[in-house]
Design a protein around this nucleic acid. Structure first.
Lengths: 336, 336
DNA sequence: CTGTTAGCGCGTTCAT
DNA sequence: ATGAACGCGCTAACAG
């Protein structure tokens, strides 16, 4: 019980205003219950003393913490900042504060962070969690939980349906006469990755084009760069990367080997977070991560106001944005 | 006092283990005070019931919240994510949680957020605050506070000293024989902006080159794009933008007008957060925002452990990274 | 309308 | 080594 910076308490205000503590409390939460006169007197005393209601004490008493935790694998991945920003704004408008957690793509750290948040959060948002279904279920049992980019029965989630976009991408490449394509994959435990891989395989099969898959360690620039060798070894003439960051790494790796894009190799990214800032401007599968952030908070707030364990779902569409990293392969007959 | 999801309390564990509440408390905070035997018994009962100490109740009792608030103007600005990430990791290693606040470049919102955090954080980190010195002083009086990119007497801060980098940039351009340069400025209340503006003016004056300044509304892509017209009207042949985002907007605005970089105009950014992903690869003034995030938390933790209102300072150096957006102007005599 | 009384869940003296 | 009692700052019943 170390003495910290003197926080003005409700009692001091009560004394100064000559009323009971409860009246001060009411002045701040239910002013309509008090006579305007006393409210004024209390408020005057309050901001003259510089009183601010103590969030923690209030939370302990009401059971409502007014906080939400948002946990992401990697803040530095450009997919997340817009999501975090949107979540922040949505939470803000409901007077909620946001705890941010960064797991470094690590499931254990995720668990650890969640533990640290329990007892001060009303709900949890897990974006692209790397945790097992079982662990997530366990957490959802103790706390309202909304997932982003992960589909688990019985748990609310916001899903970016990239299957449509991936199908468009594969079709686009097939139309350009690519006969063999490679998928540069993301984290194996990532739902988005599995979804993209499946859409990739399925569409390719339907169109009769050959496929290959190259794994990466993490969805980032370096992993993409390092994947280039294995990627080229597959003999594919075009590739779709798990995300834009990986694609950007691939782009660099190819340039380092003197392989020019799109002349010698066609590449498509995912998430469309780099916009047209890469060179060549990256063809990518667009999703709105900001919408996901906004929707997740909205869902969670809705769950908080009603029954805890609703199983709501919010889908977000995707589509292909063609820019300058795709073209016909050399082997193809120039069709016009 | 609505009944929420059954949180296992210390009393339930105490009953289950057949001991007093205080013993359970001790088992979690001062195990050495108890006999190993009872500790075991308590722990067994605890994690059999799924008990987790309530962060909030503990905070109220000890006065130590274990939380820190980090407030930034715009999460989506690529300067901040690395900073946030580093801050997060540093806080993590000290078992602190991080509240994230996004002010949308708005001073009032900043005030409002700080208010919402009081009573649940032990300290505050304000990154590139848009608040007045007076308001910041007021806050610092009630709470340990560390600033990033803002220099106020008596308040601890982490400063990215871009004056060296800016001087290098101006010198670099002058050596290329540019005779008139323009500074595309950032938010007027931004300390970094003032610092960069001053270094720009001072160095230019010393080198005898003409200068001009063009204001922008916000440090983002759109503002940069819109500033191009005014920028060109100055007749300058080279420009230094407040940050990379603005520079990127300028780059696009120039391209839209058919003005090629660096052939027709030379451009330098600040922060070096876009790396070589722009085209042409942007020459920029490098700073390590991640170091700032890490240092700010370290400073704050240090302040928490000692006297509250220390006035510490941490400087971070910058330097020019030359890439492909600078060249001699047409008017210059080709020197070799 | 307003004051009085009980807790919220936990840490911490003070006894034992 | 352990238990009983009090308080952190605030909200919420219950009176009046």
């Amino acid at each position: 019980m170390s003495k910290h910076i003197k926080g003005v308490t409700i009692s001091q205000v009560a004394d100064a205003a000559g009323v009971a503590r409860s009246s001060v409390s009411r002045a701040f939460t239910r002013p309509e219950m008090l006579s305007p006169e006393t409210v004024n007197r209390i408020m005057a005393a309050a901001d003259q003393l510089g009183y601010r209601p103590n969030h923690t004490a209030r939370a302990l008493s009401t059971g409502r913490y007014g906080n939400i935790a948002l946990i992401v694998p990697d803040i530095a991945n450009p997919f997340f900042p817009p999501m975090i920003r949107a979540a922040q704004m949505q939470a803000d408008s409901a007077n909620f504060c946001i705890f941010l957690g960064n797991t470094e793509e690590n499931g254990e750290k995720e668990d650890q962070l969640i533990g640290r948040f329990t007892g001060q959060v009303e709900g949890l948002i897990l974006a692209s969690p790397r945790l097992s279904d079982e662990r997530i279920w366990a957490h959802a049992e103790k706390l309202p939980l909304v997932l982003i980019n992960r589909d688990i029965p019985g748990i609310s989630s916001v899903l970016i349906d990239s299957s449509v976009g991936v199908a468009e991408a594969v079709t686009h490449l097939a139309k350009l006469h690519h006969r063999k394509m490679v998928y540069i994959s993301g984290p194996p435990v990532s739902w988005s990755n599995r979804q993209r891989q499946e859409a990739f395989d399925k569409t390719a099969l339907a169109l009769g084009v050959e496929t290959a898959t190259v794994p990466t360690l993490r969805p980032d620039f370096e992993s993409g760069r390092k994947a280039v060798e294995a990627m080229l070894a597959t003999g594919a003439t075009a590739g779709i990367a798990f995300d834009d960051l990986t694609a950007q790494g691939v782009l660099t790796g190819l340039a380092e080997r003197g392989i020019s894009v799109p002349a010698d190799f066609s590449l498509i990214g995912c998430d469309d977070v780099l916009g047209s800032v890469t060179y060549p401007a990256l063809t990518s599968i667009s999703s709105q991560s900001s919408e996901a952030g906004q929707a997740a908070i909205a869902l969670l707030l809705e769950m908080l106001q009603t029954s805890k364990h609703a199983d709501l779902r919010h889908m977000i569409a995707t589509h292909l944005v063609v820019r300058n990293t795709t073209r016909e392969p050399h082997s193809a007959v120039t069709s016009g």
